[in-house]
Amino acid sequence: MYLSGDALEGRQTGSEGEKKAAEYIAKRFEDLGLEPKGNEGYFQRFSFKPKTNPHQKVSYTVKDGDSTITGTNVIGFIDNNVENTVVIGAHYDHLGYGAEGSLYRGETKEIHNGADDNASGVSVLLNLASKLKESNTGNNYLFITFSGEEMGLLGSNYFTKNPTINNDQANYMINMDMVGRLKADSTLAVYGVGTSPIFKQTLSAHNNRFKLIQNESGIGPSDHTSFYNVDIPVLHFFTGQHEDYHKPTDDFEKLNYEGMQTISNYIFEVISDLDDNGKLPFRKTKNESEETPRFKVGLGVIPDYMFDGKGMRIDGISEDKPAQKAGLQKGDIVVKLGDSTVTDMMSYMKVLATFKEGDKTKVVVDRNGNMVEAEIEF
């Protein structure tokens, strides 16, 4: 609750609120008996100039100046005096009062508390730290809460280039980003399952609760990508998108705390199973994002990435966009767009990429078993 409270003003990278959050996490690490593993106690600070265009690389080497921002990774360590280390991570920064990436369209500035994104992941990380302090001595454990994730995975990228342990001794990395909204059907997405041959069978062996959606790729829009890029096996746990994503309404009252505990227990069982497996082999995966079509228009919906039925299920509708104007609703399943049948997320994106601004077409949605047709203007 503290991390997603108004007092921290949305934890934007480099802000006073984020610094208070870093101090809070460091104190929790200390209370749990974790060793400091930053380069200033528990802290690893990095300064950078924000990008002025999306294709520019961030420069971490900066001169003093008003535009320089300093982020802070917070790093704790359980040293079992063995060769390999498991990295467990979660970002703790968010969007402050609505930085770039905010989906809020209100008139007044409001704090984006980021309870699910990603105070939830930090909470599960702390819970895992308390469990691992007393068990599983086949690996050391590095716990790292990242700054700068919302600005482009900056904290994790910086860490992998300036690690406080040897990257060669990193066994695998577990990332929790948005694990606070486990739905009634217990759908849990796990990304990176193809990055080591043992992951799929281990995840399956301990799953007696979740409807698992598994994705092979080690590349995705969260901090595990930075570790995959230096040849470390990764697993990213995620309970799915929702209407409060990147909005001021992502508050702690909406979290599923029992679900978070169940996810923590599951991850702990997976870690325990892998404890005596030595160093896991790394495997390169196909990057699905390279196959993603580029499109000039959108419906203005939040897709349900956890949906594994036929079509593309809508999990949220943006204000004043084509979908809302056409009368589409949350829960509708898009099964046809124009002349093309939509069977899944990829087919939806492929057909969407064929339209441009000003085009008109028809969309067919499955609404509680009834086929509803609507006119869309992009």
Score class of each variant (00 low, 15 high):
Pro36Lys: 05
Gly194Ala: 02
Thr195Ala: 09
Thr72Met: 11
Val301Glu: 03
Phe237Gln: 01
Pro54Gln: 09
Thr137Arg: 14
Lys161Pro: 09
Ile213Pro: 05
Asp116Trp: 06
Ala119Asp: 07
Gly38Ser: 08
Val335Met: 13
Arg105Ala: 12
Val270Met: 12
Lys286Ile: 15
Thr285Ala: 09
Thr249Arg: 02
Tyr42Phe: 13
Asp6Ser: 14
Asp6Trp: 04
Ile314Leu: 11
Glu375Lys: 13
Lys27Met: 14
Gln44Trp: 05
Asp320Asn: 15
Leu34Ile: 13
Glu269Cys: 07
Glu23Ile: 11
Asn229Gln: 15
Thr361Val: 11
Thr343Cys: 08
Arg294Lys: 14
Asn157Ile: 12
Asp276Ile: 11
Arg209Ala: 11
Gly300Leu: 01
Gly71Tyr: 00
Asp304Trp: 01
Phe77Ala: 00
Lys109Asp: 10
Asn162Ala: 05
His242Arg: 11
Gly316His: 01
Lys37Met: 08
Asn73Tyr: 02
Ser130Asp: 15
Asp244Gln: 10
Ser102Met: 06
Gly300Tyr: 00
Val270Ser: 06
Ala353His: 02
Met151Ala: 12
Tyr92Ala: 05
Asp117His: 10
Val334Thr: 06
Lys284Trp: 09
Val122Pro: 00
Gly148Gln: 01
Leu352Lys: 00
Asp339Glu: 11
Asn162Tyr: 04
Lys336Ala: 06
Val86Thr: 08
Gly331Trp: 10
Leu142Ser: 03
Asn167His: 11
Thr85Lys: 00
Thr195Glu: 06
Leu3Phe: 05
Gly5Phe: 05
Lys57Ala: 13
Asp223Pro: 07
Pro221Val: 02
Ser67Tyr: 08
Asn175Phe: 08
Val74Cys: 06
Pro36Ile: 02
Ser15Gly: 05
Arg45Leu: 13
Phe146Arg: 00
Glu319Cys: 11
Ile174Asp: 00
Gly316Gln: 01
Leu34Met: 13
Ser59Lys: 12
Leu132Thr: 04
Leu255Val: 02
Gly98Glu: 01
Gly278Leu: 06
